[in-house]
Amino acid sequence: METIVELKNVTKVIKGRTIIDNISFQVNKGEVFGFLGPNGAGKTTTIRMIVGLIGITSGDITVGGSSIKSNFEDAVRHIGAIVENPEMYKFLTGYQNLIHYARMSKGISKEKIAETVELVGLTDRIHDKVKTYSLGMRQRLGLAQCLLHDPQVLILDEPTNGLDPAGIREIRDYVRLLAREKNLAVIVSSHLLSEMEMMCDRIGIIQNGRLIDVQLVHELVHGESKMTYEMEVVPSDKALTLLGTHYPNVRAHRSRNGITVELPKEEIPNLVKIFVSEDIQVFAIKEVAKTLEDRFLELTTEKGAPSRG
């Protein structure tokens, strides 16, 4: 895996307040990196520092080996971005907007523009004024704008904000396609967990300006060796007391249909044997995958809370 974007001890201080506190991470080619955090955690600030819209107080960011601080033009050449809503010139047509941005990078031909328009499916409406576009169409025009110069890194800040489910899905499929087929690195920020879970390979969780965790999505969700199982057992009271005597350190509680227990997988047959010998009826055992939401809340309360004081 080849690293394309690298943040090294990036800190941002505005008027004595530390907005971003010593963040470091890397993003590789071909992966979708999610940037997750509650509102005001510093997602947008970090993204704006990567594209050079906001200065860096200390630390550095490199894109394709060039520093965004000292070598802005070379670094930003690799980036295509939508920062928040794709704001286009409403009084121009979609095509004129693209011409406008094409003139600002080197060597973008008319054919390339047409190809990009085709790719985002705007061919029919491209010569209409942008003010007549729907939000979804503007989002697609925004995508066309950032793909014009064949970037190696795509940065999307809250790309699904305000889109309907179909639009969200379109963006998601598109992002995955670009990462896989064009080997692009994609950085996406969002506070929508389900969205990130479906779109990303790796997720960085940010809170109060601090990067508290970076994990692969499937590790984050299925991360721990202990899994949670839901057991449909009758009577559940007796099952709980039995659990308490045999596994005193295991977390277990009563749930809707029986009990929920956190246990290593290899202990399950043993537990069933105990239940059966004690005349407890076992109807079903189900593995419960934690959602990203659970993990997110867990992480942000575990690691975030103490630092707040």
Binding site: V51, P86, E87, K90
Partner: peptide, 14 residues
């Protein structure tokens, strides 16, 4: 005002 400054300043032009 239009918000287009963001897209304008992320081009490879200082």
């Amino acid at each position: 005002n239009w918000g287009t400054i963001k897209l304008l300043l992320i081009r490879p032009i200082n």
